[in-house]
Design a protein around this nucleic acid. Structure first.
Lengths: 147, 147
DNA sequence: GTGATTTCGGACTATTTTGTCTGCAATTTA
DNA sequence: TAAATTGCAGACAAAATAGTCCGAAATCAC
């Protein structure tokens, strides 16, 4: 799996919050229910996003979480970086320590190209774009089988 | 991490075996030492490659393992598929069950493009190419820090 | 102030991945 | 035939990830 489960949950939740187009807070509980994610687990994941400043939380009745800045200013990259770190954007495909331009592994060139594509993709993709897509056509966002 | 450790070990070992340009068998022990991988763990990984027909083993003094077919006919894809399976080539970025053309997730289009690039890259990259690169300039292949 | 709701923080359990160990099966060599 | 070398198979241990639970801390509504 390229992203950890925690990270995919975080992205899903972020998109969901952004897609509401409201400034009001949403409770983590309701997000977890909508997306079919374990509430307690999601709580911990979202804490990483608030600590990174991507979300703000309000610990109060009818409080919850909300985006820390405009959805158009939150990149997919920043969400991934806050949860999984930046390893996937820098790591050697073969996991070799010290692989780089100076001492490349055999797969280095191919992989560097892939990584930079992923890097720029994640940088230019914002929550605003993803949320808009989620709203158009009721795009799929929850961890539910299709039955 | 996009590939599991087991998978990176398997690829490294496969490249190493291919880079020897010999038909003779190599003991897993010596491969493990060269690449600085745990011998027993590598043994289990390579069993998956022999079961997939990518390698052949010879259980005998001075025996070991060897490629099951010409290095030019073993793709990076087949090695990855034998160890990690094909999930990374088909999975939704957000891990959503049932995400596809019919019911896409918001990141679907972007990700499908990345995946297909990865797919074709892994299909066109053969052990022969990687081994050749490894031989040119003594390219990096072992799990050793650079000191 | 009291009670309700909500996130925060840490401890805990479960599952998966990674790594280790031991004995066995196969086959050559002497 | 006996001994040595090698991969195979399964049991086991350790570490990382995923998921659960509970007691706070914060703040609003009354």
């Amino acid at each position: 799996m390229v992203l950890s489960k925690a990270c995919t949950y975080g992205i899903q939740a972020a998109i969901y919050v952004a897609s509401r187009n409201e400034d009001a807070y949403v409770s983590i509980q309701s997000v977890a229910e909508k997306l079919n994610i374990s509430f307690h687990f999601l709580t911990k994941v979202l804490q990483q996003l608030t600590q990174a400043g991507l979300m703000v939380s309000y610990r109060v009745p009818n409080g919850g979480i909300s985006l820390g800045k405009p959805a158009s200013q939150i990149t997919l990259y920043s969400v991934i970086a806050a949860i999984d770190g930046t390893d996937i954007f820098t790591e050697c495909m073969l996991g070799l320590p010290g692989c780089g331009t100076a001492t490349p592994c055999p797969a280095h060139d191919h992989w560097t190209e892939m990584r930079s594509k992923l890097f720029s993709l994640c940088h230019k993709t914002t929550l605003a774009e993803l949320a808009e897509k989620a709203n158009q056509l009721n795009l799929r966002l929850a961890n539910l089988p299709l039955v």
